[in-house]
Computed example of a mutant assay.
Amino acid sequence: MAADGGPTGSVPGCVADPTTLCAKVYGLTGVDWLAVNAEALIGKPARILLVVVVAAVVRLLLHRAIRRLTDRTATGSMPTILRPWRNRVRAADPDGVETIAQRRTQRAEAIGSVLRSIASFVVMGIAVVMVLGELGVNLAPIIASAGVVGVALGFGAQNLVKDFIAGIGIILEDQYGVGDVVDLGEASGTVEAVGLRITRVRDVNGVVWYARNGEILRVGNKSQGYAQVVIDMPVAHDTDLDRCRTVMQEVADAMYAEEPWSQVLLAEPESLGAEQITAEGVTMRLQVRSTNADQWRVARELRMRLKERFAVEGIRTPPPLLGATSATAAGLR
C-alpha cells in the first residue's frame, strides 16, 4: 500500500483526459480516491459557492442602486415652474413645505423597501433554482408546478396584481399623498391613507371612500404646487362691465397688499372681465394664485369683500327669472 492510503500504482481512468477536474486533482495531490470523487467533493461545492457569492453580490449591487435612486428622489429639487414662488411659499407655510419634504422622504423609503424586496426575491429565487440544479434535483416538475400555480394566481388574482402595480406607480410618481385634496372621479375629498392596494378618501360630508388603485383612471390633485383661485361673480345685464372689472381688480389688489394675505397670495391678482353672458346675467371672473392650504380661505375672503364692495358701488346681481319665480311660488303653494 502507498503512504497515502491508495494502492501503489493505481491510476484513475479519468486521468487520461488532462482537461478534467479529476486529472487536475490527481496531478496536484496524487490521491486516487480524491481524484475520482473530485466532482462531488470539490466541483459541485465550488459551483454552489460561486452561485451564492454571485447572487449575494448582485443583490448588494441592486440594493445599492435602488438606495441611490430613492435617496435622489427623497432629496429632489422643486420643479422649475414652481421656483419663482418657492420663497413666498416657504414664508407663508413653512410647516407645509416641511410636510412635503417629509412625505417625499417617506414615499421614497416605502418604494425603496418594495423594490429591494422584489430584487431580493428574484435574485435569491434564481440562486436557489441553480443550486438545486447543481445538487442533481430534477427541476422540470418544480418549474412545471410553478408555472401552473403562476397561471392560476394570474387569473385568480389579476385584479389584486393590477391594484398593487398601480399603487406602486401612484407612490413612485407622487400623484397624491396623505392630506391632499383630490378628485378621483367617483370620489373626491381629502386623502387619509395611500396603500399599495387601496386609497382611502374622506369627502366633505365625512363619508369615507375606499378606491382600488387599479380602478383609478385619472386623478385631479388640488394640493400640489400652487392653487389657482377662480372667483365668478354674476352681475346684471345693465352693469358697466369696465367699471365692474376695475372694482374687482381694486378689491383683489388691496387684499394682495394686505397682511397676512400678502404671504399666501403667490402672484398679483388678475381681473379677466366677462367670462359668460347668459339670459340671467353676465359672469365676471377674477383669478389669483395662492398656496394650497389657503386656497379656500382666500376664495371665501375674496367673495365676501367683492360682495360688500358691489353693494357700495351699486353693482346689482342678476334678478331672478320670471319662470323660476313662478315655479318657486307654485312649489310653495
Score class of each variant (00 low, 15 high):
112 G>D: 05
38 A>C: 07
137 V>N: 02
297 R>W: 03
199 T>D: 02
327 A>M: 09
63 H>S: 11
258 E>K: 03
303 R>C: 11
129 V>E: 04
297 R>H: 07
167 G>N: 01
247 V>N: 07
168 I>D: 05
72 R>T: 04
219 V>H: 02
238 D>G: 06
222 K>C: 04
173 E>D: 12
105 T>Q: 09
221 N>Q: 04
63 H>T: 08
300 R>T: 12
22 C>K: 06
156 G>S: 10
89 V>I: 11
329 A>I: 11
39 E>Q: 15
16 A>I: 10
94 P>C: 09
248 M>H: 01
221 N>M: 05
183 D>H: 08
270 E>T: 09
186 E>F: 03
119 A>E: 10
225 G>A: 13
164 F>P: 00
188 S>N: 15
23 A>L: 13
155 F>Y: 14
66 I>P: 02
266 L>V: 00
263 Q>T: 05
186 E>A: 09
127 A>L: 06
6 G>C: 14
47 R>P: 01
78 M>V: 09
200 R>Q: 11
30 G>M: 03
109 E>M: 07
41 L>Y: 12
290 S>M: 05
135 L>G: 05
50 L>N: 12
2 A>G: 11
202 R>L: 06
42 I>M: 12
317 T>W: 07
3 A>W: 12
307 K>D: 14
169 G>R: 09
176 Y>D: 02
292 N>L: 10
35 A>F: 01
170 I>Y: 04
14 C>W: 10
210 Y>N: 13
71 D>L: 06
69 L>G: 03
140 A>I: 00
10 S>G: 09
190 T>H: 02
82 L>Y: 09
85 W>S: 07
19 T>F: 14
62 L>W: 12
301 E>M: 13
119 A>Q: 10
159 N>W: 07
198 I>N: 14
144 A>D: 00
22 C>G: 05
268 E>C: 04
321 L>Y: 01
289 R>M: 10
80 T>G: 06
311 A>G: 04
154 G>V: 06
37 N>G: 14
142 I>R: 00
317 T>S: 13
106 Q>G: 06
66 I>K: 07
64 R>G: 09
186 E>W: 02
273 G>H: 00
275 E>P: 01
115 L>K: 04
11 V>Y: 09
21 L>F: 07
298 V>K: 00
89 V>E: 06
167 G>K: 00
254 A>D: 10
262 S>C: 09
136 G>Y: 01
207 V>I: 14
148 V>P: 00
43 G>V: 08
68 R>C: 01
264 V>I: 13
281 G>V: 00
4 D>M: 05
